[in-house]
Structures are given as C-alpha cells and as structure tokens.
C-alpha cells in the first residue's frame, strides 16, 4: 500500500489521525467482553444496555409528542414525572453496577454504536 490514499483533505494529517484514532478506540472500548470471570457484570451491562436503549426510545417518542402539541398539560406533567423518575432510577442502577453511559453504548461492529 505504497500509493498515497488521501486524495483530498484540507485539514492537518495529525487531525485525521486523531479522528480515526477516536473511531477505532470507541469500537474497541465499547465491545461487550463476556468471559467466565465477568459473567455477572457482563450480564448486568447487557441488560442495562437494553433497558437504556428502550428508555431513550420512549423518551425520544415522548418529546416528539410534546413538541407536536398533541398532549394536554396534565399529560405532559405525568409524562415528565414518569420519565424523570425512570432516568433517576437508571442513574442509580448504573452507579450500583459501576457503569457509565459509555459502557452502555455497545459497539455493533459494522453497524456502528448502539446509541
């Protein structure tokens, strides 16, 4: 691969290396690594990842509806309270299992990151 493969770039070469580095580092760090030694924490990570994905989807859909103006004040109040409590509970669980937001964003290989 001696040929120069960069055909167009107005930024610096260091800048490209840094950005490409971020892409590969993210993919490496966010892979789900289940082994016999970490089965418990690995399972917690997997379950919480799915819960977080569903929670975020519900939140997104709720915000779409709020933005669309199809909800009454009372409905917004109840929705807000429920979603806020869900978010707080999720934070507690993450803390309990010593997980961060980044841990819950599993890399799906060619499909990219989950969230």
């Amino acid at each position: 691969m001696s040929e120069n493969k960069i055909l167009f770039n107005t930024g610096s070469f260091d800048g490209i290396s840094e950005e490409i580095g971020k892409l590969t580092t993210n993919a490496e760090e966010s892979r789900l690594k289940l082994t016999p030694d970490n089965a418990d924490s690995g399972l917690a990570k997997l379950v919480l990842t799915l819960v977080e994905l569903i929670r975020k989807l519900v939140e997104k859909q709720a915000m779409r509806r709020v933005d669309g103006g199809s909800l009454t004040d009372d409905e917004i109040e109840r929705l807000g309270e429920t979603l806020m409590k869900l978010e707080m509970k999720m934070e507690e669980l993450k803390k309990h299992f010593n997980l961060t937001d980044r841990d819950l964003n599993i890399n799906l290989g060619p499909l990219g990151d989950l969230m």
């Binding site: 915000m63 779409r64 933005d67 004040d73 917004i76 109040e77 807000g80 979603l83």
Partner: peptide, 25 residues
C-alpha cells in the same frame, strides 16, 4: 415559532420536560 411547555406550576417535571425538549429540538 415554538413555545416551551408552560411553566406556570414550575414543577420539577416541567423543568425536566423543557430541558429535554430543548435537547430534542
């Protein structure tokens, strides 16, 4: 064009919804 959710009661959930709404937009 758009308004944020009325904050008449200024409850924690309303503030939370407004914050999320801004992020969503």
């Amino acid at each position: 064009q758009r308004t944020t959710v009325a904050e008449i009661k200024n409850s924690a959930s309303r503030i939370w919804v407004n914050k999320k709404l801004k992020e969503h937009r």
